[in-house]
């Protein structure tokens, strides 16, 4: 009944470049045609609202940013809002570390906090079309955008229990900066903007070192190799920027300064820009 080829059940017409190969076979990739993947939602920005930097400041910081986001939407600019965790996420990690939890379990508990923040933003923007989007609803984004909603998501990627142990330490290396970036790269988005409480990237943490200087343009690879010990964005984002097909730069703006978020969404250069060094031909 069932035909076999080389001991495996086989159906005529199933042959393809990967047939019988292991996924680890490096030579196989050389033979594939070089092509760039399609952009899923090319006109959409992905904007991340910082947890510790914005949400934990409360009304004073959050309300003016919402005003600018609503103005942008009214002007026809499309975006998906992601949000970070902040101080409660840090408390969760501190507690989990103290209790001997592995990285995947820390990522799981850490993921709850940005969901709280996303729900807060949804309530505040509901009258302007703010709508909560869970990872499983991602395929409904076109509907939400077409109906002029503001899709709001947790910035955390869905890795949770499957978060890898990092090379150093135990904290999850994919947190809300990474999830936001990976969403942007998947969508082939217009750009990824991080709204924080600093003018951009500094040579050191400006909250701890008053001598720190603003870096307007930085190279992702260079930052990983020779950058400061502390950075304004998660390190994995800088790694992925260099491997990415679409989103090869990110922008960091100061949400506490009026007009910056709107300006960034209008494509103006504000804050710091971090780019991947050489565009790959992959």
């Amino acid at each position: 009944m069932s035909e076999k080829r080389e001991g495996r059940i086989w159906i005529a017409g199933m042959d393809n470049v990967f047939s019988g190969q292991t996924i680890a076979n490096l030579d196989m990739y050389e033979k594939l045609p070089q092509s760039r993947p399609v952009r899923v939602l090319p006109d959409v920005w992905v904007v991340k609202i910082g947890g510790q930097s914005i949400m934990d400041r409360g009304r004073e910081a959050v309300f003016p940013i919402i005003e600018e986001l609503v103005a942008a939407k009214e002007a026809g600019i499309q975006f998906v809002l992601c949000v970070g965790g902040g101080t409660r996420a840090r408390h969760s990690y501190a507690l989990g570390l103290d209790l001997g939890m592995p990285t995947g379990a820390l990522a799981k508990i850490g993921a709850s906090i940005p969901v709280q923040n996303a729900r807060m933003l949804q309530m505040l923007t509901a009258k302007h079309g703010g709508i909560m989007v869970y990872h499983d609803d991602l395929e409904k984004l076109p509907l939400y955008l077409a109906t002029k909603c503001i899709p709001i998501m947790s910035g955390m990627p869905p890795f949770e229990f499957w978060e890898k142990t990092p090379t150093t330490g135990r904290l999850p290396s994919h947190r809300t900066d990474a999830g936001t970036y990976l969403l942007g790269e998947f969508l082939g988005a217009k750009g990824v903007i991080y709204v924080k409480d600093e003018d951009g990237l500094f040579t050191a943490d400006p909250k701890k070192d008053p001598g720190a200087e603003l870096v307007v343009h930085a190279d992702a690879g260079e930052l990983l190799r020779n950058g400061p010990d502390d950075l304004i964005v998660e390190r994995v984002v800088l790694e992925y920027l260099q491997r990415a097909k679409h989103v090869r730069e990110i922008c960091i703006v100061n949400g506490l300064k009026k007009g910056q978020v709107l300006a960034a969404l209008r494509g103006r250069s504000v804050g710091s820009v971090i780019t991947a060094e050489v565009p790959t031909s992959r």
């Binding site: 840090r90 501190a94 947190r175 943490d205 950075l231």
Partner: peptide, 29 residues
């Protein structure tokens, strides 16, 4: 300007290499 919950990771970006190295030790259950 921010409200922090006091913890060993308070005010940290969690990006610092030195901070991550400090979380290396300790038993995992």
């Amino acid at each position: 300007g921010r409200v922090h919950v006091k913890s060993g990771l308070m005010r940290e970006s969690l990006v610092s290499k030195a901070l991550n190295e400090a979380t290396e030790g300790g038993p995992i259950r």
